[in-house]
Design a protein around this nucleic acid. Structure first.
Lengths: 234, 234
DNA sequence: TGCGTTCATTTTGCATACAATCAGCCCTGT
DNA sequence: ACAGGGCTGATTGTATGCAAAATGAACGCA
């Protein structure tokens, strides 16, 4: 079977948008293709939380053999996107409300810190770019922009994480956001409006260089997420 | 070649002591063997930071074929213990002073929080067990107990991480400690005496249930690590 | 000497083969 | 009806084969 011939039936091979922003271009080998594709599929809910993965099928879909597929899945397990529970197959990790709130609690500690550290140290061009993204979202109709919304969400949080001056902190935040995003795409519907508002406030504070304000706005944003989840889910 | 016949030439297959304390027993397959063994080898400096891994050789050492070896390494890459640099081979991650200090900075934010949350909620038996470990260290001569020292270090930090009531927080702390440990085993020599003293203070606070004191003692401990590194290294 | 260039060897990337395990099912005996 | 006991197909775990890429050493040439 000409396995590697024509790749990726309809699966768009998308860069792991924003989150996990990689610094160095990764070589174009198949396990990188797998990790990016599966990440994208999870984010787009083509693979749902709790869904168990059958290797041969997914490998065929992606146009690779089981070897690089399994290697990619192992890497994603290390990153916490899938787990190989006591059972035999890989399972897309399912984040429940409890874990979501715990993650938000940690983010509530770290992200205001990062925002404060970043305030005043972010190139204007980057801030402007994020502003444009937000403006674009406000223009269109609210629904079904969810994908673009999450991308702008990534962009904002990545903005102060990357510019916090502490790469380890940034990496920890990215990772936590993988978890929370896993929950949000599964369970939360319409955060567009409040996110846009709160993101704008954070941006204002970041741009003005007011660290304390950035801290406060970021903390308020995350607490708003906590309240929203508690009010919305179930 | 009877590849899988007699395993692990002299490489003790050690549970990933303390850090990364896994909740569920992992099935005894070869990639788990690889991940635990390589983790142990890194912690025992049989594999040094920056050292590049040749798959066939390591596979033979562990008595497995390259397939599970590579899968295990991919998982460890996801966990941040090794990286596949721009080159092709896996490389044991090298943590420099800068990254060490950044990690400590994040730990300085998170661990006092965890200690405060855990204070008063830790079963007496667990505290007693850690105390015994420390006492045992104080008895022997200081040098060459480094391995046991690290183990008791793990035990103490794991103590309040696990009992903080926030599993995500605990996991983040474990992960950060992997990074810092990577540096410490490579660069820091004699932290035994100060660690014992500071650990005892943290234990006292935890046991008395005084959250504020636990927070303070933990923060002091981490700051002490920062100072020590700056004073000691190079 | 310094600098490509070629070629042999090593090492990785990937596919595939096969054995071991598991899940469902039908069959049988009670 | 129903509990148990193999059978069969599906799925994973592991080893191996092979081609491509990299490494490095020997060599020739300026």
């Amino acid at each position: 079977m000409d396995q590697a011939g024509d790749a990726t039936l309809g699966i768009p091979v998308i860069e792991p948008s924003g989150i996990d922003a990689s610094e160095e271009a990764s070589p174009p080998n198949l396990v990188n293709l797998v990790t990016t594709s599966v990440t994208a599929m999870i984010r787009q809910r083509q693979l749902r939380g709790g869904h168990s993965i059958v290797e041969a099928k997914l490998a065929a879909q992606l146009g690779v053999s089981r070897t690089p597929l399994r290697e990619g899945l192992q890497r994603l397990e290390g990153e916490g996107l899938v787990i190989k529970g006591s059972g035999r197959s890989f399972v897309v990790r399912h984040v429940d409300l409890g874990e979501y709130l715990q993650s938000l609690k940690v983010r509530e500690i770290l992200e205001p810190e990062a925002a404060e550290a970043a305030a005043g140290h972010i190139p204007d061009a980057e801030i402007a770019a994020v502003r444009r993204e937000i403006a674009g979202l406000q223009a269109g109709s609210t629904s079904l922009h969810t994908d673009a919304h999450w991308q702008s969400d990534d962009a904002l949080h990545e903005l102060f994480a990357r510019n916090s001056g502490n790469d380890v902190l940034a990496q920890v935040i990215r990772r936590l956001r993988v978890t929370t995003r896993l929950f949000e795409i599964a369970r939360l519907q319409d955060r567009v409006a409040p996110d846009l508002r709160e993101h704008a406030q954070i941006l204002d504070a970041l741009e003005s260089g007011d660290g304390k304000a950035a801290r406060k706005a970021t903390q308020a944003h995350i607490r708003s997420l906590q309240r929203f989840a508690l009010a919305t889910v179930r």
